[in-house]
Design a protein around this nucleic acid. Structure first.
Lengths: 201, 201, 201, 201
DNA sequence: TATGAATGAGAGTTCATTCAT
DNA sequence: CATGAATGAACTCTCATTCAT
């Protein structure tokens, strides 16, 4: 019987989005656990109470914010650049483009992504959400790869390995403020390796 | 001027370790943020107050527990199995052994490791601790690899890539309860890839 | 960056004052150290949490309560009776009126005044507050005396001595439940002495 | 049936006194409420537990410490200097000597005296103790004065007024770090006033 | 819809007191 | 007698959630 209002009016919709955006901002800045609903409301420029009109509770707000963020990610990246490539595109260039997309996402959503990754180990629902998004993304990639790769044997395993490498490269790049690495070299090597993995050779 | 007791009696040392172990257990089970000091004390079979004799506050207990856990990791693995190999050992076998060590660690410390990874994004001190442990481990591995690899060019970048792959494999394995992957295949491919990365070819 | 709410709604202002009044009541009854914030909230008929909306912490509540009480003292006494006297008023009558004001204050604020006096020896901020209020009051009195006294030599020393006598008389009166003294005599003698001190003879 | 050990052995007596001295030291430094039993034991160089062999509880320790301190006061001052004066001594010199004794006591026991004064408003037993000591002291003074003063009318009231003045002078001197007063003048005026009070003129 | 004041359960922390050694 | 580890009640403070306006 509990209900959260479905915003019909435009103003209402605005308030909800302001809350979601504020939530993401604050989670990214201070982490979920250190962020209070009061702070989110303040950041959104609305009152505390109103948050509970749109979100059942604090966790619902979190989940909604994650959903919202992941939508943004999809909107922004959406693999346009990738989709635009046709079958004749050079394969290396393809990987390079994909990697650039990954880097872009990490640049934009670094903090919230990290926080999210941390949260999944604490909360079952977050874990499920995260797993679902990851899976969707991966299936999407795998699907795309099918067109490029002649050898479909163990394509899923190869794809996971490949994407892991891309992910890991981005991760290192974002968190390496104390590590002495030559990232131009690492980037090249990453792409090389991805290609080897995918070409099965 | 604040002080945490240095255990004088043997009983005292026992209590401290019971608390550390209990802390790790609880963090692994419910995560740091959902674990109260009361719960840790209960798990350790001691009273609440005593925890504050040995740890300045909740976070100090966390940091101490991490230190304690990382010591355990080093004690358990300590790369004995790796050290015992001489130069004649087959390289592939070497990688396989290393990977098995990684898997072993992940098996034992999966939950706390995940939690730790999550916490670094929230707390500066945890981040520093994690970075330090990671770096130490990596430098150790790089050092070991030097003996095996003829080509030292970009050895750091190669090493990071290689270890990332091993890490990622373990990660996938531990978190794949909803993903349909053939892990024996993935494992072989991971090792293959690591070898390619390290051999520079 | 910490903030205590500035009352926006009228209700809010009421609550804040209820807390201050309750605080003074409880401090007077049981002393600061034996009074919990819970008790103050209960006495005020509000919840615990709200106290922390208006006061940063327990001590801030204390300081605010002292400020509030001292304001009350000023409001109540404010030396109206004294101000109303003109230069022709008999000097002895003047002293008598001042003393009655002192007695009045002590009657009303005996307990909290005692408690306050005790607290200054424990807490630096309270000490400063107390010193400031005392100084202000004394400067006020000295200023008033200037009009009456022809001889301004050592007027500050005389004033302090005089006020000390008045204070001490009140103090004895309030705390003499076990001492056998004739207070009508003591009162007369106190006034006599004050006059002698001030008249420099 | 509760009992605190009556120290028979010399060592025992030493421990008890060390605790009492430490208690006074700590109360004077940080005030009673901010002083823990642990700290007192540490200051005394003994263990926490032992304190409860000699004192029923924390308050008993306080009361015992006050008793101990007041004994010290009596021992130190004991009015030797005063007793040594014979009837021919100049009266002004007598008052001066008494005041010097008061100043001496205040110098030595300033902090604990202040703390004690504060505590009486919180605790009934402390109040009683303080009242008793004050009364004893005062009766002693009154007794002494009888020899000097020809006019015994209202001698008690005069004595209280006189001693109040002396007390107040010391108090001002000790707490005047922010007040601009000429204490040599104030001292003379205090003695003058005391004499006037006592001589009834 | 929206505000922001109010609630109250629950967490972290302290410390007087007890107890095993 | 003495030690210092251990207990646990009590207190301060926070914040998700509700409610009066």
């Amino acid at each position: 019987m509990e209900k959260t209002a479905k915003p019909i009016q435009a103003r209402s919709q605005k308030t909800k989005e302001k809350l979601l955006t504020a939530a993401i901002t604050m989670y990214a800045k201070n982490g979920y656990h250190s962020t209070t609903v009061d702070e989110i409301a303040a950041e959104a420029g609305v009152s505390t109470g109103i948050a509970y009109r749109y979100f059942r509770n604090k966790k619902d707000l979190l989940l909604s914010a994650l959903e919202f963020a992941s939508k943004s990610v999809r909107d922004i990246v959406s693999l346009d650049s990738i989709d635009s490539m046709d079958d004749n595109t050079d394969f290396r260039k393809y990987i390079d483009t994909v990697l650039r997309s990954f880097e872009d996402i990490h640049d934009r959503f670094h903090d919230i992504h990290e926080e999210l990754e941390g949260l999944q180990h604490t909360d079952e629902d977050v874990r499920k959400f995260y797993a679902k998004v990851s899976r969707d993304m991966m299936e999407n990639v795998i699907d795309k790869l099918s067109h490029f790769l002649p050898d479909h044997a163990n394509i899923r395993e190869k794809a996971y390995l490949a994407v892991s490498l891309l992910e890991q490269y981005c991760h290192l790049k974002m968190n390496s403020y104390q590590i002495n690495l030559d990232f131009s070299v690492l980037r090249e090597k990453t792409i090389d390796t991805v290609m080897m993995v995918l070409n099965g050779h």
